[in-house]
Computed example of a mutant assay.
Amino acid sequence: MKIELATEQDYQYIVERDRHIPESLVRTKIREKEIFIIKDSEKEIGWMRYGYFWDNIPFMNMIWIDEEYRGRGIGKEMVLYWEEIMRERGFELIMTSTQSNEEAQHFYRKIGYRDAGCLLLETQPLEVILTKNL
């Protein structure tokens, strides 16, 4: 397994799976080096996209692992890889979120994230905000 910055060659793979942002933003995120791609023998098997909360706190927006590769620790490896890069860049705090009806909240807590609040939108389940000190 290999984790690297996404490139234009990964664009189609990502947009076919990321239904949460407009396609045009995927290219921007690739150019800004805010998407990592996960490969197994040169085949894309997942990706992680991030941005910045308040323009200065790294915020993991989305992590995706193709279904047949889930449950193997790949997501954890991706998150820990990203955390190390953020630490090397001098960040001391990182964030992510997940909906309260998703299992991901338990995954994040197991690897050291702590509940930091929540957001309730009219048409969505409760969004749980999680932070981790690096």
Rank of each mutant, 00 (worst) to 15 (best):
G71F: 09
W54E: 10
E32I: 01
E23I: 08
E103N: 13
Y50N: 01
I30T: 06
L93E: 10
E102D: 12
I3T: 08
K33M: 02
E42T: 05
Y81W: 08
I14C: 03
I85P: 00
F107W: 06
K132N: 09
M78K: 01
Q12W: 03
S100Y: 00
I111P: 08
D10C: 05
A6Y: 02
D115H: 11
L80E: 14
F107I: 10
I38G: 06
S24N: 15
I37E: 05
V26R: 05
Y52I: 07
W47K: 03
K132P: 06
E68P: 10
I3S: 01
H106G: 08
I63K: 00
I74C: 02
W47P: 02
K39M: 02
D66I: 02
W47Y: 15
K76Y: 07
L126A: 04
I38Y: 07
E122W: 03
K76P: 14
E8V: 09
R72D: 00
L120Y: 09
F53W: 15
L126T: 11
R87M: 00
R27Y: 15
N101C: 01
E127R: 12
F53H: 13
P125N: 10
M60F: 14
V26A: 00
L25T: 09
F59H: 14
V26C: 05
M95W: 04
V79F: 02
E83D: 06
F36P: 03
R114T: 12
I57Y: 15
G90D: 08
S100K: 00
A116N: 07
W54C: 11
E92A: 00
R19L: 15
I94G: 08
M62V: 09
R17W: 04
E68Q: 12
E34H: 10
E34V: 02
N101A: 00
R72W: 09
Y69D: 01
D115F: 12
L134M: 03
M95V: 04
E122V: 04
K29F: 15
Y108H: 06
Y81L: 03
M95I: 01
A6L: 04
S24Q: 14
I57T: 12
D18I: 04
D10N: 14
G90V: 04
R49K: 15
G46C: 06
Y52C: 09
Q9Y: 08
E84R: 10
I129Y: 15
F107P: 11
Y11S: 04
F36L: 13
Q105W: 00
L119N: 00
I74K: 06
I74L: 14
E127A: 08
H20R: 14
N101H: 05
I129E: 08
Q99R: 11
G75K: 03
T98K: 04
F107D: 07
F91H: 14
M48K: 03
A6N: 03
S100P: 03
E42G: 03
E34D: 07
H20D: 15
T96N: 13
A6Q: 01
R31S: 13
L93D: 02
P58E: 09
